[in-house]
Design a binder for these strands. Structure first.
Length: 481
RNA sequence: GGCCCCAUGGUCAAGCGGUCUAAGACACCGCCCUUUCACGGCGGUAACCCGGGUUCGAAUCCCGGUGGGGUCACCA
């Protein structure tokens, strides 16, 4: 049987970190087994679903490099791939269930339902639907309809044994049927509920493995009941544990950036997110931590997926992204950097070829220092702002050194006669200063660094000088000489 | 609260009955490299939730407790 898996987001917001990982795991599983990867949109929540969110999710998926074989916007033989375009199908199957007596119309109002829930709660029982409309006659139905009541369709949970779910990551999990009341499969507006639509879709789309977040585990028994009632084979299930925030609760907005687009906006690379997310809940077993997509897809397997939830560690993400930034081609990084520098007011586009080359030098000098590209705004400040403060006591102390005025004067003189300054020239000039004054190491480098940038930390000094250029250096030095 | 899931260092995690005086990565701390700053390299601190079993032997299996998480909608 061929592998067919799907990612089925509901378009009620941007693609979340957790959703992205589900999408990734499904994608990896499909690619690993030469299967088919499908993206389906679960937009049966008419209130909250939007085309903007749908587009956003698809954009994020594209950006991550998770291409799909069937689904929204690429089509396929099992479409449509948007649930609101499949309503006839759900109604058809609901009708089948109705005909077989496995489902029934329910006319209970929200108030009646709420009252029932209160009552059960008060008695300390599990709130669930007790089946008031289970045995309605045709006559009853007509009466309710006449009274203007719109029915929902409920699934009639049959009596029987505990429901067993064989989960590929959790093992066997059982649920008692008594915990499950007759649940709604078609809402009063004719739209199917999640549990029903998901079963109809997964079956009709020939899904072989349902890989999704653990929060869906407790829904699974209802879906199993539906498969059985329809006489359909069940897919394999694999429930992956959740991604947690720092406080160990389900990752949400209050934990910081949760949407893929936010990381994209901050200048993280897609390969970082993919690599990081893959390692969150899955482990290759070896000692390597850095895996590009194409390696992941060769190694991924469900039996190496962890059962315990994982805390999202921003520090490790930052390290990984820095790692990828250090390896990325300079042109790519420069293109990424320009919008941030422009936004900071440091550049105005379009850039002349000369200016672009210069920006490349800026980016090259910072490449080893960045965790994500947005940081360049702060770190590139040293190249764009002349009237900076001397930061911190360390820097002040350094500038108080008695050799400092001599060093800076000497350097200024050499720079002024040297014309254009390349990295090697800078190195040479500094060496000469040291020779002339009989100084070395920190005694000359640190004062120059602080005089030029205001800080004891930053990029390679030779690069800084090359980027500032002769005039820039002299101007900044003039403050001290 | 009921039900379900989970439990190795601060975090991600390897481990799937003996080779565990328990890998690796992030973070942290040292040292080295660099006549500066980083990057990088090397080293270090740091963990099997508790209690019972099973077994010659348990981080690994079973039970209980505790802790954490998820879920209980005409949301997905």
């Amino acid at each position: 049987m061929s592998v067919r898996v799907r990612f089925a987001p509901s378009p009620t917001g941007p693609l979340h970190i957790g959703g992205a990982r589900s999408a990734l795991f499904n994608w990896l599983f499909a690619r690993r087994h030469g299967g088919t990867y499908i993206v389906r949109i679960e937009d049966t929540d008419l209130e909250r679903s939007s085309r903007e969110s749908e587009k956003n999710i698809l954009d994020s998926l594209h950006w991550l490099g998770l291409d799909w074989d069937e689904g929204i916007d690429v089509g396929g033989p099992h479409g449509p791939y948007r649930q609101t375009e499949r309503l006839d199908m759900y109604r058809h199957y609901a009708e089948v269930l109705l005909q077989k007596g496995l489902a029934y119309r329910c006319y209970c109002s929200e108030e009646e339902l709420a009252a029932e829930r209160e009552e059960l709660l008060a008695k300390g029982e599990l709130p669930r639907y007790l089946g008031r409309c289970r045995a309605l006659t045709e006559e009853d139905c007509r009466r309710h309809e006449a009274a203007g009541r719109k029915p929902v369709i409920r699934f009639r949970v049959p009596a029987g044994d505990a429901i067993l779910i064989r989960d590929l990551v959790r093992g066997d999990v059982t649920f008692e049927r008594s915990e499950i009341g007759d649940f709604i499969i078609i809402k009063s507006d004719g739209i199917p509920t999640y549990n029903f639509a998901v079963v109809v879709d997964d079956h009709t789309m020939l899904i072989s493995h349902v890989i999704r977040a653990e929060e869906h585990l407790s829904n699974t028994p209802r879906q199993v009941l539906l498969y059985d009632a329809m006489g359909w084979d069940k897919p394999e299930f694999a429930h992956v544990s959740l991604i947690l925030g720092k406080d160990r609760s389900k990752m949400s907005k209050r934990h910081g950036a949760t949407a893929i687009e936010q990381y994209r906006a901050k200048g993280y690379l897609p390969e970082t997110l993919v690599n990081f997310l893959a390692l969150l809940g899955w482990s290759p077993g070896g000692e390597e931590e850095v895996f590009p997509l194409n390696e992941l897809k060769q190694q991924f397997s469900l039996d190496r997926v962890a059962k315990s939830p994982a805390v999202f560690d921003l520090e490790k993400l930052n390290w990984l992204n820095g790692h990828y930034i250090r390896q990325a081609p300079l042109d790519q990084l420069t293109d990424m950097a320009v919008p941030y520098l422009e936004k900071a007011g440091y550049l105005s586009v379009p850039l002349s070829p000369e200016k672009y080359q210069w920006v490349k030098m800026v980016v090259a000098s910072l490449q080893k220092h960045l965790s994500y590209m947005e940081e360049i705004t702060g770190q590139a400040r040293i190249y764009f702002e002349d009237d900076f403060e001397i930061e911190g006591q360390d820097a002040q102390d350094i500038m108080a050194g008695e050799q400092v005025p001599g060093v800076l004067r000497c350097l200024a003189k050499k720079v002024s006669v040297s014309g254009e300054i390349k990295e090697n020239d800078a190195k040479e000039l500094l060496k000469e200063v040291g020779r002339d004054l009989g100084l070395k190491g920190k005694q000359i480098f640190m004062p120059v660094r602080v005089a030029l940038t205001g800080s004891t930390q930053g990029p390679d000094l030779n690069q800084i000088m090359a980027i500032l250029g002769g005039e820039g250096i002299i101007q900044r030095l003039s403050r001290w000489t």
